[in-house]
Structures are given as C-alpha cells and as structure tokens.
Design a protein around this nucleic acid. Structure first.
Lengths: 194, 194
DNA sequence: TAATGTATCCCGTAAAAACAGGATATTCCC
DNA sequence: GGGAATATCCTGTTTTTACGGGATACATTA
C-alpha cells in the first residue's frame, strides 16, 4: 500500500521513471543483479535485515546507486547510521510529494538530501541520545541483570564475587546516568543493547 | 507521504470521497467535532496516544464512524486490541489498492474486514507472543517504574498510597511472570509497551 | 443478582539493591 | 616506565523491593 502510494505519487512526474520494488532485502539484492536504478528509496524498518545493513551492502556492491532512507522516525541514531552506511539522503514519511521529488533530483546529482527535521536531529549533538560506552564485562553483567538474576546469582555464574557484580552495577548506573535498575534496563533496551 | 500516497491511491475511486486527514490523535478528535466521515483509516503507531487508544475514544464518542486500523505489523496482540476497541477492520500496509478499497466498502456496510495475514495472526492461539493484558492503571505504574521512580515517588505522583503501587507492581510481576523489576522492564520494552 | 475485574488500602518479614568509600592487580597504550 | 582503563575484592548503612498474607469499594456484565 505504501509502495503503491509512493508509486502513485511519482507517476505523473516525467523526470522520474519507476523501475520496480522489492519487499525485503533479499529480493532487493536479487533485483539489483538484473538491473540497476539510479536511486533506491529504502524503508529502514524491514523484515529480516534492517535497511541500515542493506544500505551498506548495496553501496558496497553498487557504489553508483544512490540510496534514500525512508522512515517514520527522525531519530538521530537511525539517520546517522544510515548516512554512515552510504545513504545519500533521508526523508521522513510525513514529508510531502514535493519533498520526495526534490530529494530524488538532489541525490541523483551526487548531492545529499535530508528532510528538515532529519537534518535538525542530526545537527544537535545528541542530547538524550547518547549511548555510553560500556566494557565487555559490564555488558555481560547487564544482560544477566536483564535476565532477572540477582547479584549473587550473577556472581556464581561468572565465578566472581557478588561485590564485584555490585561494582559493575554501580558503574553501569553511573555510565547510563540511570537512577536505578528499572531505568537502566529501559535505556539499554531502547538503545538495543539488550 | 504515506497519507498523500493513500490519497493518491483512492483518488480515482468514485465511490470513495476523501474528506481530509489528521496527523495526530488530538487533531483527529478536533476534526471529528466539525464533520464525521463514514470511515477512518487509522495508523496504529502514532506520536502521543496510540491508535488503539484513539480508536476506543472515537468509537465511544461517535459509534457510527467505522475505523480501519493500518499498520506494518501483523502482530496478534495489536490486531486483537484494535478490534477489541471497536475497530471494524485491520489492513496491513503492504496490502494493495484493491484490498484497501474492498476493506472500506466492507466496513461501511457494518461488516468486518481483516487482511488475510491479519486474520491468520488473529486465529492462531498466540505461540511465542503472549503479552499479558494489563490494565490502564498498571500500564501507568509500569511506565513510571521504567522512568526510575520508586514506589513512594509513584504514589505521590498518582495521589495513591505506596502500598497500592506495590500491589500494582505485584500484579505486573505476576502477569508477566517476571522474576523481578529488571526482567519485567525488559519484557515490557521488548513488547513495545514502554 | 452474583460473579468478575479493577483499583484501592494495610501489615509484616526477608531479600535485594543503592550508595559511600575504600583497595589491589592486570592489561593496554603512549 | 607511567598512566589509564578495566576487573577484581572489601565493609558498612540505608533504601527499596519482593512476597506472604489479607481487606474494601466500585463498576461491569453475564
């Protein structure tokens, strides 16, 4: 429906020819073996491999194809990763027909196009969205905490003292600036760490 | 873009008149005070109030308006909740133009319409997908727990006793079969409840 | 009307986590 | 070699949760 909708939006635009569409990463890659478009509009939320991964793969194999990320979310992390993986643009789905066409025309010239809100999100030095760097051991402990294990249980599992587990826990709380375990776990879950 | 796309899809359909669109729950409710459509196509993932909540509210105030849920996900829990809250149909966004039009024609007669995959998902007795049913109050408490608040803080915020908060907490742990807060929060986060 | 679900409240004990404030050994990098 | 980061361990106290028991009030609904 969305695909058909976008197709309908672009139908009357003579400067743009619709070549086809793929509904998942594999069929997209299979399609590209047959013929190469100038531009791919890529939904970043897809079944299986994410649009971010697919973007990287497409740009590796076909550097000449320009990719525009499409998403409902203007989350800094998504946009950044998409651009880092070689996308030429990022357009929010609430954008209008005009904007989409402008985006396509812009990226095909080798330039970058970002929706206004996306550009804004990217510019601001990630306020709420700073995922702290945690060590391997801390991540390990974090996962076990999320599994519902207590300090003692974690200690036994990792063959360390429970006071050590407690220290890791303190460090996790400090790094995430979390008030307690509950907010820590939510932050970690939202950051896709667990 | 999605809205414009759907609009474009329905433009050539004489039996369907496009009345307008709203981009969030509040403007939708405001719109309905002015004029009532026969059918609302409602995205279930919206900023602010979820489509599920909005559906309930719309059906309470305007029982004559038929609601069709639109979503990318054919998750049993979403579909079920949407239908429980009074929706007349559920169409996946990967559905085609034909299907959407059929859905509109069907629900306007007072009948139910479900996309094939949605109907399938609804029939199967949820395999891995057992997200417990929680009450509105429990959800409220759950969110505040995830915000890092203690029982006392939650009690003050909601103007209830901290023992009541504790009871809600007990019920949440029991419903999710969670061992402690940490695992509860992770489950809730993964189930997209928080 | 009786049953059910929801929301509210209480007491008590035991376990767990939060927090303060240390220490030591190792590894990795400049 | 010296410093930083990491991982380990310790002793406390206070706060918060977990969990066992209850109870009452209200609305919905079968």
């Amino acid at each position: 429906m969305v695909v058909e909708g976008i197709h309908a939006l672009l139908q009357n635009e003579d400067s743009i020819a619709w070549m086809g569409h793929a509904s998942d990463a594999n069929s997209c890659l299979a399609y590209l073996q047959q013929q190469l478009p100038d531009v791919i509009l890529m939904d970043i939320s897809m079944p299986g491999i994410s649009g971010i991964e697919l973007c990287r793969e497409v740009k590796e194999k076909y550097p000449g194809v320009f990719v525009i990320g499409l998403s409902t979310f203007n989350q800094q992390s998504f946009i950044q990763k998409m651009m880092e993986n070689g996308a030429s643009g990022y357009v929010l789905k609430n954008a209008g027909r005009e904007e989409l066409i402008e985006a396509i025309h812009t990226v095909v010239k080798g330039k970058q196009f970002l929706s206004f809100d996306a550009a804004t999100a990217l510019r601001k030095p990630d306020t709420q969205n700073d995922i702290p760097v945690i060590t391997r051991r801390e991540k390990e402990v974090l996962e076990l905490i999320a599994d519902g294990m207590t300090n003692n249980e974690i200690a036994q599992k990792l063959f360390i003292s429970s006071t050590t587990v407690d220290t890791h826990r303190k460090n996790l709380l400090a790094k995430f600036e979390a008030k307690n375990t509950a907010s820590l776990i939510r932050m970690a879950a939202h950051a896709k760490i667990i």
